[in-house]
Design a protein around this nucleic acid. Structure first.
Length: 691
DNA sequence: GCGATCAGGT
DNA sequence: CACACCTGATCGC
């Protein structure tokens, strides 16, 4: 749970993910994602009053987060005061002190965080250096290197401080099976059950939180079955998700919830109440997504564990594992790293001990004892003039040379020529953008999110809403502001990536009589069965299963992730994600900015077509509205401003141990994405339409 | 009646 | 051993 207090040392005038106490004085607010523990104070009367008095104070977040937030009536009062910023679109914001009129300029860039729908990290650039607030995140190894805007040219930006999600920053969480591995395990378990008969149904025992959406969309897509949920109106403007959900209980996959759900389930009753279909009783299994982790030397990584006759746990994590955190941080290599989370049972000091060696000062082979002269930037090349003032002191080494992995965009044929649209823009433009987005979403291949939120209401109305909104971006009523429809794409993987291998354990269809469970257990041996309880380092968190007599032999390992490695490579295919072209431009422009630290903002304003400006009034002015910068410009910018690095490094893997996906493989995937399914084909259409 | 906090549960 | 959330009890306004 985040213990971040809302403010960063470098930019105390803004508050992130906290809205109480000191934060009531912030000049601007940022919300990284829509989880309650990051929204403390967000609907408190104190803040509402502040908003009424300080008309220049705005909340900045991703379009998806805005959409989700405003779905709740409790946050409606924010409606006119939220400015959504597109992912990977550097945007300038003026932080004005309304009393004194004093002004501070800051450029913020949202980077996808892979935690839940709409979740982002915030990269801030301003007079006090470049800092990165990660919010909560899950990024696979090497993914960081694919984030264009964390780089200048091909090198990682000089980041002063990282405010880091340290939820699993403890060696005991060394490894967590990748999203792809977990997903494919669940897919196969579900397949093994629901293919037995139409009366075999699965209940996904998910919590009331955003973050399971990509699971739902993948399941739905794989089996052509919508997932039953209690509530889906928060997705009314997100067709990619909406299409995979239903409030109609007559489906084989449920993610509905009820306070007494577990109790119901004992009696073969789903949370939504049904026990049979056409008078024929249902056969149900439950799958509970839970985090499973494994120690460094643990051999098996099992992503599905049987916990009862008809119940399973499936590995699922919203947060990066220890090794993913280390990979991330060592890649970024900031001067400072601050934990946002101190897990119970550990201390700040302990976490800092882990983080510190991954930061800049420790990277020096000969740190403090070196003669002063050497401490200075003796070896620091001019290329690194990007560095902030401080580095005169504490940066004895040149910025680590880490090379960015070629961005998928270079491989992906599609280009999304859209950029941040400001509320200032002519209605016409805005609308057209909206349409475009709606369409691209509707057909987007990237899977995303949905949630299983509270009670079981199943109103037909919602269905209608869903249906009508599918072909119609219209009902985006509360969105007049800046953004069109929230965009999905990226975060999570899609089916293409899910390998079918290694799943022999799941009888894809066999007898249904007798046991209500899939026959998955045959392969499990005693040892693998009790992973967690015996070996703390590879615990699978098999707590509280005691109540079911079955459990003594439970926890049977069903799937070993080792059997399905390939799942990962692609698990985060962000490729198609954003406006590539523009992004490139932005990136290079930002390099430019960063290489010339002294005239940053005016510079940005005047020259950078990739930076949107949000004036103090809060209306983002999109400088990039022209945004259609021809691709040819990019190399130009790179070479002019950034020096020579630009060319060489396209094949060089970024992170020390990062595995660079085979270009061939990627290419194959992209081709698949681009041409494979009807959905994608449509998408292309839409992008063509809008290009 | 509401919010904040805590304990307990899933 | 986690998370994100819900419920219910208590306290203060």
């Amino acid at each position: 749970m985040s213990s971040f207090q809302g403010q960063m040392a470098e930019y105390p005038n803004i508050s992130i993910d906290r809205f109480d106490r000191e934060n009531l004085r912030a000049r601007a607010y940022f919300l990284s994602h829509c989880h309650k523990d990051h929204m403390k104070g967000l609907r408190a009367p104190a803040l509402q009053r502040r908003l009424e008095c300080s008309l220049k104070v705005y909340l900045y977040c991703s379009p998806v987060t805005k959409e989700l937030l405003l779905t709740s009536p409790k946050y409606r009062f924010w409606e006119k005061r939220i400015i959504s910023i597109e992912i990977e679109t550097p945007t300038q914001i003026s932080l004005v002190d309304e009393a004194s009129g004093e002004k501070e300029e800051i450029v913020v860039t949202l980077l996808p965080a892979g935690h839940c729908p709409g979740s982002v990290m915030f990269l801030f650039q301003g007079d006090n250096g470049t800092v990165l607030y990660t919010g909560d995140f899950r990024l696979a190894k090497g993914e960081t290197s694919r984030m264009e805007l964390l780089h200048y040219g091909d090198r990682v930006k000089d980041i002063q401080s990282v405010y880091l999600d340290t939820t699993f920053c403890d060696p005991k969480f060394y490894q967590i099976p990748s999203r792809g591995e977990c997903l494919s395990g669940i897919l196969e378990l579900v397949r093994s059950w629901i293919t037995r008969s139409p009366y075999h149904v699965v209940w996904l025992n998910c919590k009331a939180a955003y973050g399971y959406e990509y699971l739902f969309t993948n399941l739905s897509e794989e089996f052509g079955v919508q997932i039953h949920v209690d509530k889906l109106d928060m997705f009314r403007n997100m067709p990619d998700i909406l299409h995979h959900l239903t409030t109609d209980r007559n489906t084989q996959i449920h993610a509905c919830r009820h306070p007494k759900a577990e109790e119901y389930f004992q009696w073969n009753r789903l949370p939504c109440g049904i026990t049979s279909k056409s008078k024929i009783p249902l056969h149900t299994i439950s799958i509970k997504p839970s985090t499973m982790w494994f120690g460094e030397r643990t051999r098996k990584t099992n992503v599905i564990v049987r916990t009862g006759e008809s119940s399973y746990r499936a590995c699922f994590s919203f947060h990066s594992s220890y090794s993913e955190i280390k990979d991330f941080l060592s890649y970024i290599c900031p001067v400072n790293a601050y934990p946002n989370v101190i897990p119970v049972g550990t201390t700040v000091d302990k976490v800092l001990e882990i983080l510190k060696p991954l930061c800049r000062s420790s990277q020096s082979s000969e740190p403090k004892y070196k003669p002063l002269g050497k401490l200075k930037r003796a070896r620091t090349t001019h290329l690194d003039s990007e560095e902030e003032e401080d580095d005169l002191f504490d940066d004895p080494l040149p910025l680590p040379l880490r090379y960015k992995v070629p961005n998928q965009q270079t491989l992906h044929p599609e280009i999304f020529p859209m950029t941040a649209v400001s509320p200032n823009q002519p209605e016409k433009l805005r609308q057209s953008t909206g349409c475009f987005k709606a369409e691209s979403m509707q057909t987007s291949p990237w899977t995303d999110f949905i949630d299983c939120e509270e009670s079981n209401s199943e109103s037909e109305e919602e269905l209608h809403i869903a249906a009508s909104s599918q072909g119609d971006p219209g009902p985006v009523t509360h969105q007049q502001n800046s953004d069109e429809v929230p965009q999905w794409k990226v975060f999570f993987k899609r089916n293409d990536d899910v390998p079918e291998n290694g799943l022999e354990n799941f009888p894809s269809s066999t007898e249904a009589g007798g046991s209500q469970s899939p026959k998955l257990l045959s392969d499990s041996d005693g040892e693998s069965t009790h992973i967690s309880s015996q070996n703390s380092s590879q615990s699978t968190h098999i707590s509280e299963q005691g109540s079911q007599g079955w459990d003594s032999q439970s926890d049977t390992v069903l799937l070993s992730s080792q059997d399905r490695n390939s799942a990962d490579t692609t698990s985060l295919n962000k490729s198609g994600y954003r406006p590539r072209l523009k992004e490139n431009v932005s990136a290079s422009q930002m390099e430019q900015k960063d290489t010339c630290p002294n005239d940053t903002y005016s510079d940005l304003k005047s020259r950078d077509p990739g930076v949107s400006i949000v004036p103090s009034a809060g209306e983002p002015t999109s400088l990039s509205s022209g945004k259609h910068i021809p691709q040819e410009k990019r190399p130009l910018n790179l070479s002019t401003c950034v020096d020579s690095q630009s060319s060489s490094d396209f094949e060089i893997p970024s992170t020390p141990e990062a595995e660079l996906p085979q270009q061939e493989h990627l290419q194959h995937l992209y081709e698949k994405l681009a041409t494979g399914e009807s959905i994608i084909v449509e998408k292309r259409k839409s992008s063509l339409l809008n290009t």
